[in-house]
Write a protein that binds this DNA or RNA. Structure first.
Lengths: 231, 231
DNA sequence: CCAAAAGTGTTTCACGTACACCCATGC
DNA sequence: GCATGGGTGTACGTGAAACACTTTTGG
């Protein structure tokens, strides 16, 4: 039996929730888990759970992500804190939402490594979610769309080595508009942040494209000198 | 004596803190209050306090702001949630930080209407703050500097009717760099978001400048059509 | 040899930037 | 009439946008 914990005033419970984005050849996707307990039993929801009292928020988000989906070592950033009084039917629960970007080429698209069923959904084809998770997902999508243009976070969605076509495809999917190939290449190469590798892609039924790698060190150096990334 | 509230697992306390920015003729300022109880008794801190269990986060921030500084009906937006385990020496406290923008021409610069001493400090001349409030203040300042360029939130720092010189001064203070007068006017007037009034400023020892008003309705209409504000 | 995607430059136009003088007003 | 800030236009350069063909490779 657990110890009891008593306070002078009632306290909200504190949780974290994670919006995990991934990109495959067709779509921008989000990772959802199916709830196996009430409330909203059987419904799809964002991975997440309670914050321990001796654990910082980001650690809690990482831990829940790892426990529920098997995902670890990914880009994770705080999104927003949702605190509507009735967002959880049981009691007052405030949730700190995070969003994560993972490389879908690496991880298995079919599902995650955990007991609960987890699956990737195209962003424009998600089922109705538990709690206020639809709202959280929309907030995360808006944030991603806004942020990808002026911070080099898009690379988190690609494997370490990627082609310019993959990179352009990423921006087209996230921004939801077509980009001009020549202008895109001119701009992105003009920034000098991509390392051109002596390597090409494999197993394609046409001319193989050259591979590049994002030079994070150089980006950080330039940023200190006032450089601003922008697509 | 209060009722006791008991939970199966220990819970963090939840607070809100507000970074209130104001602009006067000289500087960008922040509103601080002096703590009259431990911990950090006597130190300056951001206004803030505990979230009630039946109150949403933004309401809590508004309420604390009003109680501690007399300020109400201002622009208020969530900033970030700070959850380091030892940020409060007493126990685990997670705080949802907000930032507010107020028009200093209206409010009294000397202080606020409350019992506790409150005062405006120039941003580059703040005392060491309680808890992790220096970090929160820095985060808020960074957010303001970033956001003012592509969202028309700067107007919240000015009175309803303002001169173009005041507006330019605002951007120069927030962005911390000089702007060219003619280019600034060309750009801001070119957006067509300022309503030119048949009125000029008063009590100046030189030619009086024309007054303008920000046309929020028009901004919202244009935004829906894909317009992007940018300075 | 055909299908598929890789890779490559130039022109045009809009916008950002740099820059200096006359005007209106209060004292 | 003088001091103070208000108000105005143009020239130049940079960067965004539009646009089509040749090359390489696998099958």
């Amino acid at each position: 039996m657990k110890r009891k914990h008593t306070y002078k005033f009632p306290r909200a419970a504190l949780t974290v929730d994670c919006v995990v984005f991934g990109l495959d050849a067709e779509d921008l996707k989000v990772l959802l888990i199916q709830r196996d307990i009430p409330p909203f039993e059987g419904r799809w929801a964002l991975p997440g759970g309670f914050v321990r009292v001796d654990e910082k928020l980001e650690d809690a988000a990482m831990r829940e992500l790892s426990e529920e989906t098997g995902i670890r070592d990914v880009f994770l950033e705080q999104l927003y804190t949702f605190g509507a009084v009735d967002r959880d039917p049981r009691e007052r629960v405030v949730t700190v939402a995070y969003y994560a970007l993972v490389n879908l080429q690496g991880h298995d698209v079919a599902g995650a490594t955990d007991a609960r069923s987890a699956a990737w959904f195209a962003l424009d084809d998600t089922p109705p979610l538990a709690f206020d998770h639809d709202q959280i997902l929309k907030t995360a999508h808006d944030r991603l769309r806004g942020k990808v243009r002026y911070q080099p976070i898009g690379f988190e969605l690609l494997p370490e080595k990627f082609t310019l076509r993959q990179l352009q495809n990423l921006y087209e999917k996230v921004l939801d508009r077509p980009l001009d190939k020549r202008n895109f290449r001119k701009k992105i190469l003009g920034m000098g942040l991509l390392e051109e590798l002596d390597e090409v892609e494999h197993d394609v039924a046409h001319r193989a494209a050259r591979l590049y790698r994002f030079d994070r060190k150089k980006y950080e150096r330039l940023t200190k000198q006032g450089f601003n990334f922008e697509i």
